[in-house]
Simulated scan of single mutants.
Amino acid sequence: MDDQRRAYLCGGLAVLVWSTVATAFKIALRTLDPLQLLLLADAVSILALLAVLAARGRLGLLRAMSRREKLLCCGLGLLNPFLYYVVLFQAYALLPAQEAQPLNYTWAVTLSLLAVPLLGQRLRPRDLAAILVSYAGVVVISCRGDLTGLRFSNPQGVALALGSTLLWALYWIGNTRLKADPVAALLLNFLAAFPCILAATLAFSALPPLGWAGLLAGAYVGLFEMGLTFVLWLSAMRLAARTPSGTARVANLIFLSPFLSLVFIHFLLGEAIRALTLAGLVCIIAGNALQQTGKQTK
Results as ranks from 00 to 15, higher is better:
residue 155 P to L: 02
residue 155 P to R: 03
residue 155 P to N: 03
residue 156 Q to A: 08
residue 158 V to W: 07
residue 161 A to G: 03
residue 161 A to V: 01
residue 161 A to C: 05
residue 161 A to F: 02
residue 162 L to Y: 04
residue 162 L to K: 00
residue 162 L to G: 04
residue 163 G to A: 04
residue 164 S to G: 11
residue 165 T to Q: 01
residue 166 L to P: 00
residue 166 L to A: 12
residue 166 L to Q: 03
residue 167 L to M: 05
residue 167 L to G: 00
residue 168 W to C: 11
residue 169 A to T: 05
residue 170 L to C: 12
residue 170 L to T: 03
residue 170 L to R: 09
residue 170 L to A: 13
residue 172 W to G: 01
residue 173 I to C: 04
residue 173 I to P: 04
residue 176 T to S: 13
residue 176 T to N: 12
residue 177 R to G: 04
residue 177 R to V: 08
residue 178 L to E: 10
residue 179 K to N: 15
residue 179 K to P: 02
residue 181 D to T: 05
residue 185 A to W: 01
residue 186 L to M: 14
residue 187 L to M: 02
residue 187 L to R: 01
residue 188 L to E: 07
residue 188 L to D: 03
residue 188 L to Q: 02
residue 188 L to M: 11
residue 189 N to V: 13
residue 189 N to Y: 15
residue 190 F to A: 12
residue 190 F to V: 06
residue 190 F to W: 01
residue 192 A to Q: 05
residue 192 A to R: 09
residue 193 A to C: 06
residue 194 F to A: 13
residue 194 F to H: 12
residue 195 P to W: 09
residue 195 P to A: 08
residue 197 I to P: 07
residue 197 I to W: 04
residue 197 I to T: 10
residue 198 L to M: 15
residue 198 L to V: 15
residue 198 L to A: 15
residue 199 A to C: 05
residue 199 A to V: 11
residue 199 A to E: 01
residue 200 A to D: 04
residue 200 A to M: 06
residue 202 L to Y: 02
residue 203 A to Y: 02
residue 204 F to D: 01
residue 204 F to M: 08
residue 206 A to K: 13
residue 208 P to C: 05
residue 208 P to L: 06
residue 209 P to S: 11
residue 212 W to M: 10
residue 212 W to T: 08
residue 212 W to A: 14
residue 214 G to M: 05
residue 216 L to V: 07
residue 216 L to K: 00
residue 217 A to D: 10
residue 217 A to R: 07
residue 218 G to N: 09
residue 219 A to Y: 04
residue 219 A to K: 05
residue 220 Y to Q: 00
residue 220 Y to P: 04
residue 220 Y to F: 09
residue 223 L to M: 00
residue 223 L to P: 00
residue 224 F to A: 03
residue 225 E to D: 15
residue 228 L to G: 04
residue 228 L to P: 00
residue 230 F to V: 13
residue 231 V to C: 10
residue 231 V to N: 02
residue 232 L to D: 02
residue 233 W to L: 00
residue 235 S to M: 13
residue 235 S to R: 15
residue 236 A to F: 07
residue 236 A to M: 03
residue 239 L to Q: 07
residue 241 A to M: 01
residue 243 T to S: 12
residue 243 T to W: 10
residue 244 P to N: 05
residue 245 S to Y: 14
residue 245 S to P: 02
residue 247 T to Q: 14
residue 249 R to H: 12
residue 249 R to I: 01
residue 250 V to I: 14
residue 251 A to I: 10
residue 251 A to E: 13
residue 252 N to M: 12
residue 252 N to L: 14
residue 252 N to I: 09
residue 255 F to E: 08
residue 257 S to E: 14
residue 257 S to V: 14
residue 259 F to N: 00
residue 259 F to Q: 03
residue 260 L to I: 14
residue 261 S to T: 12
residue 262 L to I: 05
residue 265 I to D: 01
residue 265 I to G: 04
residue 265 I to P: 05
residue 266 H to A: 14
residue 266 H to K: 11
residue 266 H to Y: 07
residue 267 F to W: 14
residue 268 L to H: 06
residue 270 G to C: 11
residue 270 G to V: 08
residue 270 G to L: 11
residue 271 E to F: 11
residue 272 A to R: 15
residue 272 A to L: 14
residue 273 I to L: 14
residue 273 I to S: 09
residue 275 A to W: 15
residue 275 A to M: 12
residue 275 A to D: 09
residue 276 L to W: 13
residue 277 T to L: 04
residue 277 T to Q: 03
residue 280 G to R: 08
residue 280 G to W: 09
residue 280 G to N: 07
residue 280 G to T: 12
residue 282 V to T: 14
